[in-house]
Design a protein around this nucleic acid. Structure first.
Lengths: 94, 94
DNA sequence: AAGGTATTTAGATAAATATCTAATTATCAA
DNA sequence: TTGATAATTAGATATTTATCTAAATACCTT
């Protein structure tokens, strides 16, 4: 969970996720939306991948990134655990 | 939203939230669960308060902290926005 | 093969953050 | 009022993190 929350704690990374929500995108296309260098973007994408929030697939010269929505289920569950006062008492955090 | 995600991006702070899920607590009681100094804890509580994730009430010599579950609704909404591909297209992030 | 484009990696740096000790403030109890 | 306890604030430090430029890698096109 720590990787996930850390990954979500940056505005640029959240913006990337929002972009990918609409459609799968190549790195270059994402880059045009983000006022940072390609190197910085690569760094952010690495962090998102590490948290399993995005998937990447090499397509020839390009790399296409997509949202991995399954992981968000874990986050939702974590929040529900916090929110629901009377219940199974949430599992471990990390 | 940035304050919230930043606040959630630390294990100790998430642990505090889990503790408060069970019951309202005084700072000292929280402290016993956390292998950090009181000063550090104060710092974390400040960040959580700033994100509106917790509320505090002075009770004599003590300060009692409690979970403010309403804010989690915003996080849930944010995640739903990300998750639901076809829909109003989420509002601004910050 | 040679040159061009897309992306990542390396290395450096500045800013943010988590933590600590020591000092301060506020309240309680004799 | 004095001494003890609870919590926060101040100031310092080490780690993490976001960012950059430059270099490397991978693939495409001619």
């Amino acid at each position: 969970m720590n990787n996930i929350f850390k990954a979500l704690a940056d505005p640029n990374r959240r913006k990337i996720l929002k972009l990918l929500r609409e459609k799968d995108m190549f790195v270059g296309d994402i880059l045009e939306n983000l006022n940072i260098t390609g190197a910085s973007l690569s760094h952010h994408l690495q962090i998102l991948k590490n948290a399993d929030l995005v998937l990447s697939e090499k397509k020839g010269q390009y790399v296409e990134y997509s949202l991995n929505t399954t992981v968000f289920q874990d986050v939702l569950k974590w929040i529900y655990d916090i929110t629901d006062k009377d219940d199974p008492k949430g599992g471990k955090d990390e």
